[in-house]
Design a protein around this nucleic acid. Sequence first.
DNA 1: TCCTTCTTTTGAATACTTCAAATGACGACT
DNA 2: AGTCGTCATTTGAAGTATTCAAAAGAAGGA
Lengths: 150, 150
Amino acid sequence: MTQLDTHGMLRGAGLRVTEPRRAVIEALEGLPHASADAVHARVAQTLPDVSLQTVYNVLHDLTGRGLARSIEPGDHPARYELRVGDNHHHLVCTHCGAIADVDCVVGQAPCLTPDDDHGYAVAEAEVTFWGLCGDCKHAVAAPSPVSIHL
Amino acid sequence: MTQLDTHGMLRGAGLRVTEPRRAVIEALEGLPHASADAVHARVAQTLPDVSLQTVYNVLHDLTGRGLARSIEPGDHPARYELRVGDNHHHLVCTHCGAIADVDCVVGQAPCLTPDDDHGYAVAEAEVTFWGLCGDCKHAVAAPSPVSIHL
DNA sequence: TCCTTCTTTTGAATACTTCAAATGACGACT
DNA sequence: AGTCGTCATTTGAAGTATTCAAAAGAAGGA
């Protein structure tokens, strides 16, 4: 099990060390690609009084300081992950919103560049693969007779 | 100016031909990458009684029948475009949300196919380039003294 | 022209996220 | 160890983009 130095992470980023913040980081470690709501539920297991608003605040602080990254897939709620700095992309399930990491086999940062930047100062290339995850693949393709009558 | 056969487009897709629908298609022709709100404003110039709800309905119908495509960039409102069927990507301004088309990307092909699909049935690879558009590049980098005191 | 079905309207509701003011706690400094 | 200023958290509400639902209206095949 990777030992997280939550204290060092926070202090190194210039943030005060508090229980809610440590708990959010640990939640993200256990739940990669978790939504704010999922993080809140996980944090509540050990710190029942931490509000959802605080989770949003913390996630905002973490992403602002580069300790976390937010993923905003289309119409699904935002997800958060601790993997920052490495160049990886995501597989997103169009049905349930589940996310899996895809490592960029070509290695270094933006593996793609536009042929015409239209005057934009391009900072990042984001690749999202849309599809059905293992569970939804079966659920959607072959719904049980019961589920039809919902 | 390209003459749009709105009647043929709608009938060909199995949709009834109505003024609001023709107006939405024409709005998208004049405003590529427009938001629902922007489409509504444009439509209202000729058909003031068309509601925003109707615009949402029409956009939903058009995307459902493959006549239009929706782009959902992070936390910006959804945008719509008539360009469908060709494989192109987008440049999105992180500051104002402006969108420009990118016809093709140069770089390593492996990035457009996941090395490990994690059991997903991948349907599409979407590439989004994030950056600052021409206007925002200057506005953000060198704000005028006046704007600082807002 | 009639009639069925699809569209549009109106009004409200939802989900996710952010804003704001007051209370509370971290930690730099003494 | 104690003080104090600044930053965090809580509480409660507001906001934005979008969707739901029921009733009235229009398209177009027979």
